[in-house]
Design a protein around this nucleic acid. Structure first.
Lengths: 108, 108
DNA sequence: GGGTTGCATCAGTCATGGCTTATGATAAGC
DNA sequence: GCTTATCATAAGCCATGACTGATGCAACCC
């Protein structure tokens, strides 16, 4: 499983996206995250584990608590994947149009 | 469900990523896709429907066949989402370091 | 026209993974 | 020390959704 693949897998679950968007507002403890999303604390811990495995979050201990925050690494991986894919898609699209493909063709 | 959310959901399934990466190589018929990935033809059709719903693929009829190709729209949505998120994450990270956060802190 | 191929939809099965409760471990507070 | 709070792991349940076989429809071929 490649890095970008892991990131996409991690972002495939709505609850994990909610956690990440919450962390987008700054560092939070597991308890704070649990209070924000409507699932149990163990569920949050499991999601955080997946997010950390994808390089999307980092944590540090602070006494008995553990603070989580967004990690740019995973987002960078995703960004690189999307960018490469996107450039190629645009090039293909341009070539397609050049060959006479219509832009407002039937879509399904 | 926002656009970026739909894209992330669509890319959350490994088989759909495989289909998309195959289409990355150019237009393909449903049969060709089915032969490439190891699932049944109905499964492929269902995945293509989800990918199309997320704006990741487009199709056009060619006689009895239907040709699918990558659609830049969905990728653009994802790109915008990632970029916005990424910029903020970097800014947060910089602020965190300024406040005395270590860069090679404990990561779990 | 009859047969064949290509694709989508339907209905139903099954497995992945998201969720819960229970438990254990560590740190702080009294 | 004992209790309380915070978090992670374990075990098990359950629902979503990925997949299959069956069927129907359209377009090509003979």
């Amino acid at each position: 499983m490649t890095d970008a693949t892991r990131v996409l897998n991690a972002l495939g679950a709505p609850t994990r996206r909610a956690v990440l968007e919450l962390l987008h507002g700054g560092e939070r403890t597991v308890r704070e995250i649990t209070d924000a999303v409507e699932v149990s604390q163990p569920a949050v811990s499991q999601h955080l584990k997946v997010l950390a495995g994808a390089g999307l979050v980092r944590s540090r201990a602070s006494g008995a608590r553990r603070l989580y925050r967004v990690d740019p690494d995973g987002l960078g991986e995703l960004r690189a994947w999307v960018d490469a894919f996107w450039d190629d898609a645009l090039a293909e699209f341009a070539a397609y149009v050049d060959q006479g493909g219509d832009t407002d063709e039937e879509k399904r």
